[in-house]
Design a protein around this nucleic acid. Structure first.
Lengths: 102, 102
DNA sequence: ACAAACGATAACAAATGTGTTATCATAAGA
DNA sequence: TCTTATGATAACACATTTGTTATCGTTTGT
């Protein structure tokens, strides 16, 4: 009994996150994607030795917006994402899903 | 004298679009990315024989939003894009840029 | 101890996306 | 010709992001 989410208790976060009745597969895929994406942004920024303020200057996206993005307190628009990724040497690509069960 | 943009005339759209003083390289990259992305979405949707209304039902994104997205009258949020791509069997991936001149 | 730089965040205005509902013009089919 | 399905779009309410400005607590270096 260590985690409380929406008034209910779970022993681990995974118990909640991987329960289809709590988090739908689509939602989960989305969150996993965003988590991975944000992780790479932070990694790339730090690898280049840039502060959020540096990246703000390079990208044209303001520091508070970058902070919100990196701490996943916003769902950025595609242009914002592109602006931030660009000076980090990255872009986005549309690719076929691994498990093509549609 | 065939195209008028912002009160100025250009013989071709490329004359305008590829002029750094009119459209910055960053802006151009952004527009090219979105154009390519949207093209693939439309292609994938039609390849599956889906109407915008079909895709709306599958993705949970409403038809007017899909129409705005496909006609590039909006800059979608990353979750909207993800919802639309998912039932089409695609996802987004972060990749290194081709011309790494940063 | 002090200064500087950092990420996070508050508060508010402005811009923009999305949902909702409905309709339009057009194309395709019966 | 009539019906149906399509993508586009209008109008409005609502939700959310982003910009703006400023500040906070923490860490780092002097």
């Amino acid at each position: 009994m260590s985690i409380n989410i929406n008034g209910e208790n779970y022993t681990t976060f995974s118990d909640y996150f991987n329960d289809d009745s709590k988090v739908s597969p689509a939602e989960r895929a989305q969150i996993e994607f965003e988590t991975q994406l944000i992780g790479k942004i932070i990694e790339a920024r730090e690898a280049k030795g840039l502060s959020q303020r540096d990246l703000a200057e390079l990208s044209g996206v303001k520091q508070p917006a970058i902070a919100r993005l990196e701490s996943m307190r916003s769902t950025p628009q595609i242009d914002t994402l592109f602006k931030v990724l660009s000076p980090l040497g990255y872009t986005l690509s549309i690719v076929p899903k691994e498990n093509m069960q549609q």
